[in-house]
């Protein structure tokens, strides 16, 4: 037996120097803070250029404009955290807005709080359909919700059938929720903020919600840990539907008029906003707060371009660029970590 001559006789092979990876851990954890900084930077920069950008009316418009996207982002986040996606939110919003409008058309004195419940109810029904197909029949959610996106839009068009809902048929009290302010802050923003805070707290605090992270982080391990995977995924879709339904009622309150195209295209804006906000598209990580800040950032940039009189064309290009930058950033961070881990292990194993 001969021992391979390479062992021991030659100098050890050249070894690249290990690089510290701790900084990135901190950067990654502070994702929400980072977005806030960018929001304020964009805001500050635009204000220097155009001081009217910081006027209270402009800020109110900024907050109100981002609110529904941010709200839908909350529901979308819950679904994405479980390694699924809900593309039907825009259609659900449209249907809900129309159904609530229809209720007012036939019952002008319908109580305002109940109207919101009707909107949520419409969303719950749609969410049950999505959740049942995904969780019970085990069809990929991308396909299921792409189907219901069109299906619900079709139902919407059928129900609308040319009947226009206009401001005259909607009670002033309801519209007030969409356009009025409380202490200078738009009501619609306050509602969104409350939802974000409550859901954000719940996502941290309750076992069933931690299950959602477990499912998205490692589905096989979640099964091994006894997490009721299908049940949780089902309720995630129901919740996303309910939020989209609430969004529909708020949408009606904000715009006071509904056509069959209401909310179309929202799903992609919401998903991009959520991903910009640090929610991993493959599930397992991200916060509701980040998911709400993402759309706020996109809307701030949007408004800033208007204030800076830059062509609206840039708007979508920047949103797209930001999305890719956010994903590239996440990928970069994870690759770096992987490499650091390998090098650290090699250094220790030597």
């Amino acid at each position: 037996m001969t021992i391979a001559s390479a062992v021991g006789e030659l100098a050890p092979a050249p070894r690249p120097a290990p690089t510290p990876g701790r900084v990135w851990d901190i950067v990654l954890r502070a994702r929400e803070l980072g977005i806030l900084v960018v929001i304020f930077a964009v805001f500050g920069g635009t204000t220097i250029y155009n001081s009217s950008f910081a006027s209270s009316a402009s800020v109110q418009q900024l907050l109100a404009g981002a609110s529904i996207y941010a709200l839908l982002g909350v529901g979308e986040t819950i679904v994405i955290i479980t390694r699924n996606v809900d593309l039907s939110v825009g259609s659900v919003l449209g249907l809900s807005a129309y159904v609530v409008g229809e209720v007012f058309l036939h019952n002008p004195n319908f109580p305002v709080p109940l109207a919101f419940l009707v909107g949520i109810g419409v969303g719950v029904v749609c969410g049950v359909v999505n959740g049942a197909i995904v969780a019970v029949a085990r069809v990929p959610s991308l396909v299921v919700t792409l189907g219901t996106l069109y299906l619900i839009r079709g139902v919407d068009a059928l129900v609308v059938n040319g009947v226009q809902i206009d401001p005259s048929s909607i009670p002033g009290g309801f519209i007030g929720v969409g356009v009025n302010n409380i202490l200078g802050v738009p009501w619609i923003f306050v509602i969104t903020a409350v939802v974000v805070l409550v859901v954000g707290y719940a996502m941290r605090t309750f076992r069933s919600n931690r299950d959602l992270y477990a499912i998205g982080s490692n589905p096989a391990a979640a099964e091994l840990a006894g997490v009721p995977v299908r049940k949780r995924v089902f309720w995630a879709f129901v919740f996303s539907g309910a939020i989209a339904g609430l969004g529909g009622a708020l949408w009606l309150a904000q715009f006071a008029t509904v056509a069959s195209t209401a909310g179309s295209g929202y799903e992609l804006i919401v998903v991009s906003g959520v991903v910009v906000g640090g929610v991993a598209i493959f599930g397992g990580s991200g916060t509701v707060l980040g998911a709400a800040l993402g759309p706020l950032l996109l809307n701030t940039i949007n408004q800033a371009l208007v204030a800076a009189r830059i062509s609206a064309f840039w708007n979508q290009a920047i949103a797209g660029g930001l999305l890719i930058a956010a994903i590239a950033f996440d990928r970069f961070v994870s690759l770096r970590r992987e490499r650091n881990l390998r090098l650290r292990r090699a250094a220790r194993g030597a």
Partner: peptide, 11 residues
């Protein structure tokens, strides 16, 4: 190991 990479050690 079959862990949840995104969650804390305690969780």
């Amino acid at each position: 190991p079959t862990l949840f990479p995104d969650l804390s050690v305690a969780e």
